[in-house]
Write a protein that binds this DNA or RNA. Sequence first.
DNA 1: TTGTAGGCGTTATCAG
DNA 2: CTGATAACGCCTACAA
Lengths: 343, 343
Amino acid sequence: MATRKEVAERAGVSEATVSRVLNNVGPIREETKRRVLEASKALGYYPSALARSFVRRKSGNLGVVLPYVPKVNVFSTYYFAEVLSGIGEAVREYGYDLLLMFRSPQESMDFAGLFKSQKVDACIILGSRDVSEERAALRILQEEGHPYCLINQHFEGESFSEIDAEHKQGSLEAIRHLIALGAKRIAFLNGTLDFSNSVDRLEGYRKALAEAGLPFDPQLMLEGNYSRKSGYAAASRVYAMLDSLDAIFVANDRMAIGLMQGLRELGVQTDDFPAIVGYDDSDAARLTDPPLTSVHVPFYEMGKRAAKRLLAQGTDGSDDEGAPREMLGTRLVVRKSSRLRET
Amino acid sequence: MATRKEVAERAGVSEATVSRVLNNVGPIREETKRRVLEASKALGYYPSALARSFVRRKSGNLGVVLPYVPKVNVFSTYYFAEVLSGIGEAVREYGYDLLLMFRSPQESMDFAGLFKSQKVDACIILGSRDVSEERAALRILQEEGHPYCLINQHFEGESFSEIDAEHKQGSLEAIRHLIALGAKRIAFLNGTLDFSNSVDRLEGYRKALAEAGLPFDPQLMLEGNYSRKSGYAAASRVYAMLDSLDAIFVANDRMAIGLMQGLRELGVQTDDFPAIVGYDDSDAARLTDPPLTSVHVPFYEMGKRAAKRLLAQGTDGSDDEGAPREMLGTRLVVRKSSRLRET
DNA sequence: TTGTAGGCGTTATCAG
DNA sequence: CTGATAACGCCTACAA
């Protein structure tokens, strides 16, 4: 490996000058610049990113924390693929690198440590849940002023940096849609409430019912954990009250898919399905039979925005601030699954 | 931020001793160790990963290169999600970090530069294609002896480090299955041949025909690019020869899904579909109507193996070598889509 | 068992 | 415009 020293010698200049040329800093004579560049290329010199990071005290990495259970995707791969793509785009734009960090769902994570050990310059946290250790860890992050951003999760009562989506509104529209179709009894298969978006959806659901003067019936509430399996498991309960049910709203597509599968295995014909609305508008929503009406969430955009918020800080001098919680819009995509069955 | 010097002072030892304690190296008196640990904790000291990497000349990063087109997934997200999960598992096991690097599909990449600039200690390359610049870049990697590994791509005539799957065998079995069902005229919607697995599939296809004494008919060959869109686009050609077709083998599930969609829009009823076999056995294969018979590929395992091959090198002293090309098995998963229609 | 000191490859400051 | 030179935080012989 060619060293900088060799480059300097070959170009007949000092190492400092080599550095200047390669970093485009300070005034340099054209001729000198040319010679250095030439020598550098001839020798195949590559500056050490390690040394550079060290002296600049910047890793050049944007960290992305995501929950991880081997062979089990708690969320849809769709969600992560979209968010990561969005982040990837921004990262490449700003010349950063993307450091992926998995964490076991239980294991509370020392977010601040990532910064203190200088592994990352900024960090995006996915799949965060509202449990006390998590709150505590995030508070530290906030207090110590590290650049971080949560995606798709809100912590009530804090002012964390968050990019979220209008889940309450999305759910509201989903239920309105069902009601407009004539549904009266609408079940709700939600996820656990430690995800703020589950809470948001519940609010939207209740608001829509209230608007229409429909009663809220706790009997109609089901809980899953966003996995296909949990949707599958819910099928028996739905089956039990099938006759009294007009429709069911499911908090993500995966569960909706599991539910449909489960119902089918219990012998329910497609025509006898209650109207179903899913959530996320993942690729899979187009493939189910019947195609799944679902609430579209701009995950790609959310990832991109989060990354930009973080990386832009480094660029301009603005100490950011501004709305710590930004919310992007959702949108109902109607397909066939939300039709009410004939009576 | 507490510095190591402070820790040393508080513990009443030298910085070197602090270092020793924190790295568990060299003989240390229990009492000293205790004091250092205590001081370190009290002060909230975090060693700088940057400085550490610098002096050790190891980034601690496993790089993963993946092709990238914003908002377009040339491959299925399924493929990447599985491979990444596998890599993630190994990485966490070995205490490495995972550095994601996107590259535009055209842009030929300076793989060796990643090592020379010391951004990564080892590197996995996904979505590589057999084009001359790529070969050249990989040869350099090989010659310079950097630890790298290709996944799901083989370069004939080279001895690159590769983790591949038995695509020839997988295709062979897929076609045998169709033939066993009575299919005589089997079309093949393949991907471009700069992906070695396209070539492998073609070989499997031809071999199966030959075995059965069936002729190879170039008319039955279609080419897509692994996107759903290209499968969709192929529908019209398939439609044109629908009557003379018993079955069609499609090189990945995405295209198969696009194809089914396209046929349907052309007015073909499910019952009139030719028998269809897809490839990858992605989640989506279970969701299509009819469910898609497909060839299962152990992507998760492939990612894990590749990462382990790379990271284990660092651990033991073995300069690896051993079979540079390792191939994992594929397996046909039969579902309803491969039934021949009634005549 | 512990301390001292040199060096890792860059950047940045300060003279010239 | 360019050349010395001092950090940066940590690891690791070598000495004690």
